[in-house]
Design a protein around this nucleic acid. Structure first.
Lengths: 333, 333
DNA sequence: CTGAAAGCGCTTACAG
DNA sequence: CTGAAAGCGCTTACAG
């Protein structure tokens, strides 16, 4: 171990050919005799030569690195969503010979991403979250760095990919309405996240599709912490709400806790559903009816898109992926 | 945007000096006139020049990238532990001018790490988990790549850093015993993880320290899924166990579920504690007594160690970090 | 089909 | 204190 690494020059000398030839044998570009190519390739295999990708990158003005932009706030990056994304991206990148460089950014501080870009360490990036006014997105655009955004944005110039949150929420809400729920309440997080808005739309679509439905509904947005949820639930119980719809797992967990403390039967007294599904909910009792997305697939596809952009293909527009509604014990439909 | 990037040659020409001089002005290495240095630095600032780190790396045989080795199995990488680690490492690396390259590995497949190494994309690595017989560790050793391991290993040659799991578990278990618990059961995960073994030791230390304690205890290891936990809990309830000690959050969640389903009062009927603390448990009802580690700090320190190794300092041995025992509602001590 | 040479953007002995 | 030159390990027009 620790022998000086083999270089293309060593091989050239050893085989009595030029560096050019060795390079061509490896890359497959440019004409080269079948004979020579074989000789080179055999030598390479026998001696476990592997080219210095950094040098190659310098010559080709590439890095073979992809930037992975993750939210740097706690609570958020902990969501299983980002890990699954990460796995999908990492695998796809790896299969294509790329590595993944991490950049953690917060709403007001994107220095890690800036460094990766100004240091010319990445060829492109994938954003794992989109805000209404997204700093990383703007930065990448201004600096001409190719990227794809996981999530949705109004800016049509950005290549984006997302699950059909709106459709999913429409379907699940529809099931509730058709199932006879007379009054329901939606509890959601920050409107700043585009996904919150899309889920809200889906929720409302369901009512739009059923003009004859006559029941009551109310909406609580920008709900942040457990205490807020408690207050809301308290109120809803007094009003004898039929079903509480949560926009995500965290909120849903809070709602379930509130129920448990107050000894409210789910779904007996109140039904509960969530617009997002993760282990957190599956392992609770009762298991919660919710929507499931294939997040690893989302990551894979996003990365695939980026790779194609880097290959010069004119990838653009929006890609929409599906979903699955999972009926579980927290509803009686 | 998209102007060709400024290079050291451009600056040299513009200022009528040599590239050497510009390089020296930037790096601060080698003698250089105060005058000239200032001129260069002013130009650099005014034009937002930033050196091509890849080229710099090629010349210096460095990459200014650190490998972050994460477990590629689902269930596992989802644990908040890894995200917190990641943040600590990412921040520390960033502050030192390094970027973080991701390598996800499973027990039997470390190709991503191998690629990062053979492609010469990283200067060193930090392992975020240690197994009894660790493939990534062996690989890095064989290839002479500097690394630090988060967690513990018997191999004294590896620079390692870990929280004092053993001490923490000893303390918590001790509190239970001194608090009057007469019978307790430990439920733990795979023994393959070194941390499992350390926690077990701490648990047993507590009994060793109290030779006069006369009660009953039992241990269940290598427990993997919810069903298994259910069976165990079922049995323990029949035996009227006093306290169930869980090795981690996942197991603890399962135990709580089992209790809830069976309408067993916690801590009234049975007390529950966990040897690891995360949001998952804090947000449950009742909140669970457990042990808390500063995982981001762990990541920061680990990365700091690696950076020092790369600077040529003779860092070695084990670093042990502290812990905190958090008494909450799941126990009545 | 093959090679000598210049180039990617930096660093660093060596000489002055 | 400063610079010309060689080098890091590749690629790629250009010429033959």
């Amino acid at each position: 171990m620790e022998e000086r690494n083999l270089t293309i020059a060593d091989i050239a000398q050893e085989l009595g050919v030029s560096k050019t030839t060795v390079s061509r044998a490896m890359s497959g570009k440019g004409r080269i005799g079948e004979e020579t190519r074989k000789r080179v390739q055999e030598y390479v295999e026998a001696h476990h030569y592997s080219p210095n990708v950094v040098a190659k990158g310098l010559a080709q003005n590439k890095t073979f690195n992809l930037g992975l932009v993750l939210p740097g706030d706690y609570q958020i990056v902990e969501l299983p969503f980002f890990q699954k994304c990460m796995m999908g991206i990492s695998r796809t990148a790896s299969e294509a010979g790329y590595d993944v460089l991490l950049s953690m950014v917060t709403a007001d501080k994107i220095t890690q991403l800036e460094r990766a870009v100004t240091n010319r360490k990445i060829d492109g990036a994938v954003l794992t979250r989109t805000l209404a006014d997204d700093a990383p997105m703007r930065y990448l655009q201004e600096n001409g760095v190719p990227f794809v955004a996981i999530g949705s944005t109004d800016d049509d110039r950005v290549v984006q990919i997302d699950n059909d949150h709106r459709g999913a929420c429409l379907e699940l809400t529809g099931k509730l309405l058709d199932g006879g729920v007379r009054s329901l309440a939606l509890i959601g997080g920050r409107e700043e996240y585009i996904v919150t808005r899309n889920r809200l739309r889906g929720f409302e679509d369901a009512f739009g599709e059923r003009p004859d439905w006559n029941g009551s509904r109310q909406t609580f947005l920008n709900v942040e912490d457990e205490r807020e949820v408690e207050n809301i639930v308290e109120r809803l119980l007094v009003e004898r709400v039929g079903c509480i719809v949560c926009m995500d797992d965290f909120l849903c967990g809070c709602v379930l806790n509130a129920m448990q403390t107050r000894q409210v039967a789910v779904p007996g007294q109140v039904q509960v559903v969530s617009f997002y599904d993760s282990m957190v909910l599956k392992n609770r009792i009762p298991a919660v009816t919710s929507i499931r997305f294939d997040v690893e697939e989302l990551g894979r596809k996003a990365c695939g898109l980026l790779l194609r952009m880097l290959d010069g293909e004119e990838t653009q527009g929006r890609t929409v992926l599906g979903y699955e509604v999972r009926m579980r014990e927290s509803t009686n439909i």
